[in-house]
Design a protein around this nucleic acid. Structure first.
Lengths: 335, 335
DNA sequence: CTGAAAGCGCTTACAG
DNA sequence: CTGAAAGCGCTTACAG
């Protein structure tokens, strides 16, 4: 490996001079600089970023910690995070935690060791150890698609799940529906809770007493949606619409109707949440609530950039709005 | 930031001793070691990986260069790459090239500067500059889902696209089809070419002269598949089956039939390639050829690990087999 | 087993 | 404008 020293020797100048040329320092004669630069090109010299980082206390690296890159949500966000960060000269180290607490902590530790300049995280577990680690990092941290605990004075970028759910419900109300079932994600999930809250509050605002039998808690998969729909149809025969807390559940519900000869939207309306790509498929055309997933990644990266350049450990959070996507699975009630 | 020096001072020992404790060096008394380790814990000391890497010439970092993390293929592979590498103490720096040559080169440069220990790449462009860069890196490189050019003596992990295509065609032949249309991806794409080759050779082996009008080159999207199917039906009215070079195209073809009242598989059989998740949807159930995408990521990472630990710049490539997934879009021909 | 010293490849005051 | 020197936080022979 060629070093700055080799270049200096070749040219009969000092390493300081070479360094100055490399760093575009003003204190160097233009000619000297050109000579040095040319020699570097000639010898295929590449600066050692490690040495540089060590002395400058800046690694130009940021960490991205997500549960699962395989989830279209996270991959969309990861895409944009990388895009804006790499444009700004940062490299991004990514980690799938697979929702494992030990892996989350391991990553946080390597963030310290590697002297990363900032991180974007979507943790699933945040015990006291992890919180302390996060605090001790002493670098900008932004939470993505999740809110940080109160004690951690760190910004987040997330969507307003609650309002999104209200939007879905209001649309259903506007079509005349009153008996609306709910297919939920696992109870412990943050987004699941928020969307449920939107469902409940909307109902109450309309003076409708939620029917406990009209609420089904499940997993987050198509199969879960299928089963939930089956149950709901039995439990609540006069139900005219269903709000599925995510699209996979919605697609599952739709599959149930398709297989069992239930006409959608004529006999029952279905609305989802997320606007996954599949929902736009010809056979599906699920009406749903969209989240700006790419924008979330972009905003998170921009926020982090700002914090890193301004040397801020906190900043204002960003809450993005959802959008109703009307397709073919909801219609007015005809009675 | 606490350093090794601070710990040494606190304990009244030399930095060498502290370093030895940190690195589990044998030349240290067990008691001393424990004392040091304890002090480190007490003071929340974290070693600086940058300094370490600089001196050890090993950054414990590997690069992953892919076109687009948003593509389910690449995200699946990225997931497994990260998993095996992080288990082995490596961090992975990932980059979306967005199929831009300048970004590919920029990444390769940062691989040099950052002194990464190895990389896994799926380049789209490989001009002479890029090839030279790759060569000069002088670290293990494995190509993922793409073959390297001959001059580059580097291993790859890929699927046998050609055989996969033959598998699809043989299945169609076994059902009695002779007039088989082809919906291809862009001509320049490596995988597209291989799958086309499989189509052509299979036809020839059966003594069938390929009908040029039965071949349609398109993009890689659902819409492209839709349009291609439309054209193919006009150009080749007696066509009984279609081989779509990827699933998105196959789904598009299927959408055409659904919208235009063409019964599948009764009037026409359709087979795809990739086994994307959507193909298993109730409305689709596309017969297709599966690629072991997660396994590909895993294998690539394992291969790279092996090369890094054995200090090898080349190794044997790995070709994975495809698998026919029979669902509902193909049937025997009734005449 | 322990310590002093050199050095990894750079940058950054400090003189001149 | 240029160079000599110190130093970033470590590891690694080399003595003892």
């Amino acid at each position: 490996m060629l070093t700055i020293k080799d270049i200096a020797k070749q040219l009969g100048v000092s390493v300081s001079t070479v360094s100055r040329a490399l760093n575009n320092h003003p204190d160097i004669r233009e000619e000297t600089k050109q000579e040095v630069l040319e020699a570097m090109k000639r010898f295929n010299y590449t600066p050692n970023a490690l040495a540089r980082s060590l002395i400058q206390r800046k690694s130009n690296t940021v960490g991205l910690m997500i549960p699962d890159i395989t989830d279209p949500f996270f991959s969309a966000m990861a895409h944009d995070v990388e895009e804006v960060l790499s444009e700004n000269g940062y490299q991004v180290v990514y980690v799938n935690t697979s929702r494992r607490p030990d892996k989350e902590k391991r990553f946080l530790n390597s963030v310290m060791e590697r002297k990363m300049d900032g991180i974007i995280v979507t943790p699933d577990f945040l015990d006291d150890d992890a919180k302390e680690l996060l605090q001790r990092l002493n670098i900008p941290v932004v939470f993505l698609r999740r809110r940080p605990p109160e004690e951690l004075n760190m910004p987040f970028v997330d969507v307003n799940h609650y309002e999104g759910a209200c939007r879905a419900m209001d649309y259903l109300f506007s079509l005349g529906h009153r008996q609306i079932g709910f297919i939920g994600m696992p109870r412990y999930s943050f987004t699941g809770q928020e969307r449920y809250r939107g469902y409940m509050d909307s109902l109450k605002k309309q003076g409708i007493t939620p029917a406990p039998r009209g609420i089904s808690w499940n997993g987050r998969t198509i199969e879960c949606g299928y089963k939930a729909m089956e149950r709901l149809r039995e439990e609540l025969p006069d139900m005219t619409a269903v709000f599925a807390a995510n699209d996979l559940l919605g697609v599952g519900a739709l599959e149930y109707t398709a297989r069992n000869g239930v006409a959608v939207p004529d006999q029952i309306s279905i609305i989802g949440f997320d606007n996954l790509e599949v929902t736009d498929l010809h056979w599906i055309k699920l009406t749903t609530v969209a989240q700006p997933r790419k924008e979330m990644g972009r905003k998170a990266a921009e926020l982090l950039m700002q914090m890193m350049t301004d040397n801020l450990l906190t900043a204002d959070s960003i809450t993005l709005e959802t959008q109703l996507i009307v397709r073919n699975t909801c219609s007015g009630i005809a009675r």
